[in-house]
Design a protein around this nucleic acid. Structure first.
Lengths: 191, 191
DNA sequence: TACAATATGGAACGATCGTTCTTTTGTCAA
DNA sequence: TTGACAAAAGAACGATCGTTCCATATTGTA
């Protein structure tokens, strides 16, 4: 159907409000149907297009494309087409940055040793806790009982901590390096 | 119960995976119960604490505190192990970065003209839409039908756009400067 | 206008929903 | 060991779930 885009928009609104998708009966009144049959057909179409999926419990969940921004959003706002691909396909920033909530902590950045990597003092980094990491990962390591944010490197078979600021030295731990977690994201608030 | 934190963590992981909350029977197997009664009690407790809510359809939805993430201070003398898990500071990323959702859009950054300000290509900036800004604000301006991210400056009574990268020139608009919005936040995902 | 194709309404199905109750198990203190 | 209390298991409830069927209404085409 050609109204599917509108119906999908209503589902997105509902999801934005509640954080979950509604049952068929609620979709029914949400889009104005008077029976569940057209809802079933609608859901089937949206599933085929990748906007919806089902959980094993047969409930609806957002599909791969559910968070795509409709193109008409940019057009409606009157923005030039070059800008159309600068938008962002996520509803919440949290969902974008945090994949494993139970292993994730936020750490406030102190110091400017990672300046060159675009991480400034006062920024917050999203850290996935785990004891091992690969060279090249940005990690939170524990050095002298303090958190240290550096890039993990390898030197003659040993791990080293590399800052992204020429004013700081590479840290070559004498004992084994204790890794608190791996940095998977970062954010900053202005003003 | 004191295991509630762990159970909540599993619900958050489930939600991160599926984008919806499971029915009681799935929670049951998710946390290891063999009947639904303890699930009902668990849900009641989590509702009281603001982590869960119910939709009018009696389904579970994320509550106000569902997306709280633990926030560690980077300088912590004590050891960062499970011991200190008790009373973390928490932060909800979306609430922190977005104050006025209806006026806020996310824009993906292209180019490295703001490198020096810790904004890299591929980053996303949180933009509050408004037509006016003050000198010193970082703004999204519309120049030659394209979005441009620069710091707003003032030169002889006229607004100019200042990059944070010496390789780029200051932009001195001939006509009036059209401002799309002000940058209030920024975030980045690694990997 | 008449016909064919499609979409919706309405009803029925077994399954599962969330809730509530009682019974059993587990835990801690005396 | 016993008794008191709390938590979990288990069973049962009406309600609602998603699905499917067929009849009716709507639409497009000639």
């Amino acid at each position: 159907m050609e109204n599917d885009a509108d119906y999908l928009a209503r589902l997105r609104d509902y999801y934005a409000d509640h954080g979950v998708l509604p049952p068929y009966s609620t979709i029914m009144s949400l889009v104005g149907f008077k029976s569940k049959s057209p809802v079933a057909a609608l859901v089937a179409r949206l599933k085929l297009q990748g906007f919806l999926e089902s959980t094993p419990d047969k409930r609806l969940k957002p599909g791969r494309r559910f968070f795509e921004r409709p193109l008409c959003d940019s057009v409606r706002a009157g923005f030039p087409s070059p800008a159309a691909d600068t938008h962002h396909d996520t509803l919440t920033i949290d969902e974008y940055l945090v994949s494993h909530p139970s292993r994730t902590v936020l750490v406030t950045v102190k110091g400017d040793s990672m300046n060159g990597a675009g991480i400034l003092p006062g920024d917050t980094v999203v850290v996935e806790k785990r004891a091992t990491a690969n060279a090249g990962d940005m990690v939170i390591a524990i050095v002298d009982n303090e958190f240290t944010l550096k890039t993990l490197g390898r030197e003659k078979g040993k791990f080293v901590l590399i800052p992204s600021n020429p004013a700081y030295p590479v840290i070559r731990p004498s004992s084994d390096l204790e890794i608190f977690g791996v940095v998977v994201g970062q954010f900053r608030k202005y003003k």
